[in-house]
């Protein structure tokens, strides 16, 4: 039942239906934004924005590209944030789907800066009261047989969701096809995360944190220690 997303950026038109659908499903307030000289808005993820289509103009091989990257939590297979927090009441992985879930108890985490720092993709965002928030895989929808809101709303098929093995197969098949046109195309960290992006060019052209920085998944001693305790934390998370 382990789930994953496949985000095919070659099909993304940045209509931003996903961004709005996410807010609608989670009933998140709009941010008061300004036009900053870009179509991309809000400027960044926030406590009220879990999904953000990043838009970047880049010149690749002398040709203009407008690259779109529908950013969100990657739901790591071994989430550094979960390990760093060390409190399954605050951050846990849903055993059925693999969704990494933040609860209201994140407010009480003593090492919240470390938790944020531990994310290789710069995802967690804090409310003024200290609570952390991010994409929750629309776990309530998924548990009721629906797709995440961002996937349902996507008109082009850029956003896909399903069983992990099927999604990985889909991603690999699509990569083979896309490579014929874009030889540099790659899947980003497919073995480590549940939100697998397909990009046509170097990942950093899309977004600074598109791909985990080198060594992100190399564990610190502290994390390794917690990992040893994982069977227990997993058990606790199921009881929460």
């Amino acid at each position: 039942m382990s789930k994953s997303f496949f985000v095919d950026t070659t099909l993304c038109t940045a209509c931003r239906g996903c961004q709005v659908a996410c807010k609608q499903w989670h009933n998140l307030p709009a941010e008061k934004t300004q036009n900053r000289g870009s179509f991309q808005n809000p400027a960044d993820l926030s406590f009220s924005t879990y999904k953000l289509v990043r838009m970047n103009e880049a010149v690749v091989d002398g040709q203009l590209k407008w690259l779109f990257f529908p950013d969100q939590c990657r739901h790591c297979l071994e989430p550094p944030c979960e390990a760093t927090a060390g409190d399954p009441g605050a951050i846990y992985s849903d055993p059925a789907t693999g969704a990494v879930i933040y609860t209201a108890a994140t407010k009480g985490l003593g090492n919240i800066d470390d938790v944020i720092e531990s994310c290789p993709y710069n995802i967690p965002r804090q409310a003024p009261d200290g609570t952390l928030a991010k994409c929750d895989m629309c776990l309530d929808r998924v548990q009721n047989g629906l797709q995440p809101a961002c996937v349902t709303t996507c008109p082009t098929g850029a956003m896909n969701f399903g069983e992990r093995d099927e999604i990985l197969a889909l991603a690999k098949n699509r990569l083979e096809v896309v490579k014929k046109k874009y030889p540099q195309a790659t899947l980003l960290d497919p073995e480590d995360i549940r939100v697998v992006f397909l990009v046509s060019y170097a990942p950093q052209t899309y977004h600074e944190f598109a791909v985990a920085s080198n060594g992100s998944f190399n564990m610190t001693r502290q994390v390794a220690l917690r990992r040893m305790l994982k069977p227990f934390t997993g058990l606790i998370s199921r009881l929460v």
Binding site: Q24, A30, E31, K32, T33, N35, R36, N41
Partner: peptide, 27 residues
């Protein structure tokens, strides 16, 4: 509000060349 968040203001798109010519900075 969710749509105004995405496109909050009237804008004019201009080339980098024209911006330079008119001394206009982005935003």
């Amino acid at each position: 509000p969710w749509l105004l968040e995405l496109q909050p203001q009237m804008f004019v798109e201009i080339s980098e060349e024209l911006a330079k010519l008119r001394g206009i900075t982005n935003g």
